[in-house]
Simulated scan of single mutants.
Amino acid sequence: MDAVDPKLRSFYSHSYAGLDVKGDRLIIYRKPDAALDAFVRGQIDDVDVEFRDAPYSLDELEQLTERVRADWHYWATRRFPLRMVIPRLDGTGVNASSPPTTPMRHGQSSGSVTATSRSSWTAPARTGIVPAR
């Protein structure tokens, strides 16, 4: 299973979003792509694979990740200094976090992004920052 992720990132990043392991099942998140599905089935024959649709591909989410990182000053001035920004494995947006020492009030918000008391926020596809179409 570990060998298929780098190949999907290299050859299918236009439709591939990520993968997850649930018990003995491998879940592949991707925009519908018959070639990707066939590739995975050809690479893995001894594991139960489930394909799930994702609204955004890894390519789109990497661009969004870079846009959020480029706005580090904006987030810092809103008391949310970025520590980490990464694409969500399910292809729905990006996750970002700030250092745990950042003082945040529960429910503090800025624009369409809400910071929680855990000093992290999620930008889901329907309510947060998403790739421009």
Score class of each variant (00 low, 15 high):
V4L: 00
V4E: 08
V4M: 03
P6I: 05
K7V: 15
R9M: 14
R9K: 15
S10A: 15
S10L: 14
F11P: 00
Y12R: 01
Y12T: 00
Y12P: 02
Y16H: 05
A17T: 09
D20T: 11
D20Q: 09
G23Q: 03
R25N: 08
I27V: 15
I28H: 01
K31T: 00
P32F: 09
F39D: 04
G42D: 08
D46K: 06
V49F: 02
V49I: 15
E50M: 10
R52I: 03
D53L: 04
S57A: 09
S57R: 06
L61E: 10
Q63K: 13
Q63L: 14
L64M: 07
V68G: 00
V68D: 03
R69A: 12
D71I: 01
W72K: 14
H73A: 10
H73T: 01
R78H: 15
F80S: 07
F80Q: 03
L82G: 01
V85K: 00
V85H: 02
I86C: 05
P87N: 12
P87K: 05
A96E: 05
P99Y: 11
T102D: 05
R105F: 13
G107D: 09
S112M: 07
T114S: 12
A115W: 10
A115C: 01
A115D: 01
S117V: 09
S117K: 08
R118S: 14
T122W: 04
A123F: 03
P124E: 04
A125L: 02
R126C: 04
T127A: 09
I129G: 01
I129N: 04
A132H: 12
R133Y: 01
R133V: 12
